[in-house]
Design a protein around this nucleic acid. Structure first.
Lengths: 197, 197
DNA sequence: CCTTTCATGGAGTGCGTGCTCTAGTATTGC
DNA sequence: GCAATACTAGAGCACGCACTCCATGAAAGG
């Protein structure tokens, strides 16, 4: 008998489709992108598409899960004894760098507006949770060391750092003169001002 | 012959449809909302809908134009000799208050993700422009008086105030514990920290 | 009264969509 | 080489959508 085809090849194809979808979603949004458009972008037939992903929605969820995992990995890689405030600032800089890729920025913007679909909403909530849970301990430690203000709980301070990141992303989309490269330094400065004791 | 119908009644109907659409768009997004759903919400038939708006897109543009006008009016109503920094902070507080209405928040989120449609993008760009042009003079005056930092041009400082507002809106959507009422004061404080000399 | 115009609902239409089916081709194990 | 399975393409399908058409009602001149 024959058998389980090369899993590497399988995974590579999956990633190629994900990559094509990312490009399409970033430009025309989730609902505005047809599976046919993704197939065209990826250079495959629709049969192939649905061989790798049972539905269009499952593809979106796969991308979201990928991003969530990446966030998890980023925080898992931080050494426990690092300087807390540096980690917070490093994450902000890291996120800003990712947003330099307009595909990422466009995708995030497109996806956070897929509303009323429970599976997507829980995936987004999970992503937000992982981010909050990854960042908050460092904020708390920084607070314990007196590096950041103490008039708000770590939970709120963390949320406000994410406010800056969310807003940064939004401005990139709507303001031509506002570029990730040009404003990255100001972003880190803004975080410092926000957290300063 | 008969005649030009009562324009008041006409306008009222239009506003009722706009109101229904706002509700629907806020919950399920633009693409996720069918004209049938808007008709159901407004309690009208589809014939009536297309009697008032030629297309679904034109309805969206009408809502956007309405919001842009409101922003224009808000700034037009500020007296020229007012304290500049107070005006900036007042606008921030005003915007935060509007976002207390979850329909507004949801609508804005839904609409900024309608991508790849030129008419919508230009309408959004106009809205952003009106906001920037309304706010920037006050920031500039505040800077001239030494009320705000001078290491960045007024244009950038204004953009960063809008970053905070955009981010505030985004957090409201994704973070259950982050409420407009609870965080409004922190928002104004964040603006002060951002602009402080 | 009658006539003209706007207002309204809802059945109907054509099209684009996500997805399925099937038939053919590569790739694997023996 | 052969059989069995995975992979691939694309024609086709059912459905939901934005939008149209038409019949009817209501209000305002004359």
């Amino acid at each position: 008998m024959a058998r389980t085809v090369d899993p590497q090849r399988h995974e590579a194809r999956r990633l190629a489709i994900i990559d094509a979808a990312l490009t399409c979603f970033a430009v025309t949004g989730y609902a505005g992108t047809s599976t046919a458009a993704i197939c065209r972008q990826a250079g495959i037939g629709s049969g192939t598409f649905f061989h790798y992903f049972p539905t269009k929605q499952s593809l979106l969820l796969a991308i979201l899960a990928y991003g969530t995992d990446e966030t998890r990995r980023w925080f898992a890689a931080r050494p426990d004894d690092a300087d807390p405030l540096s980690i917070v600032e490093a994450y902000v800089a890291h996120a800003a760098e990712e947003m330099s890729d307009p595909r990422i920025a466009g995708f995030v913007r497109a996806v956070t507006a897929v509303m009323g679909v429970p599976e997507v909403e829980t995936a987004l909530a999970l992503d937000a949770r992982v981010l909050q849970d990854g960042l908050e301990p460092w904020v708390a430690r920084a607070q314990a060391r007196g590096q950041v203000r103490a008039d708000l709980p770590p939970r709120d301070l963390t949320a406000w750092v994410l406010v800056l990141l969310d807003g940064f992303l939004g401005r990139l989309a709507v303001d031509e003169a506002f570029t990730a490269e040009g404003q990255r330094a100001t972003l880190v400065d803004a975080v410092r001002r926000l957290l300063a004791p």
